[in-house]
């Protein structure tokens, strides 16, 4: 049982800087994942404009028949989103944690260039641990 299908991180101009899929469901090739990322970026921006409430920060959760999409936007405009099984709980906590990992293991790495694709070994290791932990916690629920 894989609760999380895939994870995306997009930079403030809508470019995909990190993509990882978990399990076979919803797997995408590179071109498709890039497309989804920039599509989501635009939809997120449009939703802010269309919202009847002033000061709306954009879509946080998209519920579809076959998946849920949880999105978290950091103060600097970097967006983190996971595609997961419908009805999966506590995704915002996981996203916050992934954001924390990003600030630690990506932004504090002198070899990372801002807005560029993330290739940091430590980030990958810690992320895998976090997702695994989340799965174990989910099984316990």
């Amino acid at each position: 049982m894989a609760a999380i299908y895939s994870l995306y991180i997009i930079n403030k101009s809508g470019g995909l800087i990190f993509y990882k899929d978990y399990g076979s469901k919803g797997r995408m090739d590179t071109n498709d994942s890039l497309r989804v990322a920039s599509l989501w970026h635009s939809m997120h921006a449009i939703s802010q404009q269309l919202s009847p409430i002033t000061g709306c920060s954009g879509i946080e959760l998209l519920e579809a028949d076959t998946f849920d999409l949880n999105c978290f936007q950091s103060l600097t405009g970097t967006k983190f989103f996971v595609v997961c099984e419908p009805g999966t709980q506590n995704m915002e906590v996981l996203l916050k944690f992934i954001y924390e990992l990003y600030t630690d293991y990506v932004l504090k790495n002198p070899f990372y260039e801002m807005e560029m694709p993330i290739r940091c070994e430590l980030f990958d290791i810690k992320l895998t641990q976090a997702i695994q932990k989340d799965r174990v916690a989910l099984l316990g629920r």
């Binding site: 293991y105 790495n109 070899f111 940091c120």
Partner: peptide, 14 residues
């Protein structure tokens, strides 16, 4: 602690 050295830098260690 937070540093991952890219593969192309070989054995470089901060």
């Amino acid at each position: 602690k937070f540093i991952s050295v890219p593969k192309d830098m070989g054995t470089f260690n901060c």
